[in-house]
Amino acid sequence: MLSKEEIDHVAELARLHVDDSEYELYGKQLYDILSEIEKIESVDVEGETKIMISPCTNINEYSNDSIGPMLSKEDILKNVKHSNGDYIVVPTVINE
């Protein structure tokens, strides 16, 4: 079982609220998954130190430094819930 503090920590990292009713379930489930993950530590890699992040073999992909097609303001704001027509409106981020 993961403790309430441990669950609060991982939920904070993932920016998730946790309801009081969920601690018991998450405590067990997260413990089960993390126990499985621990197995990775004991895998014998025979001294290998190289890593593989992606199967992609392309080398040095650069985009051209040129102006391409752009989205309209209407398109960008199309799925925004809180907007004043020109900007996306969010709660104040900086304290005075």
């Binding site: 991982v10 990292l13 993390l34």
Partner: peptide, 10 residues
Amino acid sequence: KRRLMIGSYI
């Protein structure tokens, strides 16, 4: 949510 918590933790 479970997967995101694990992923963030890792």
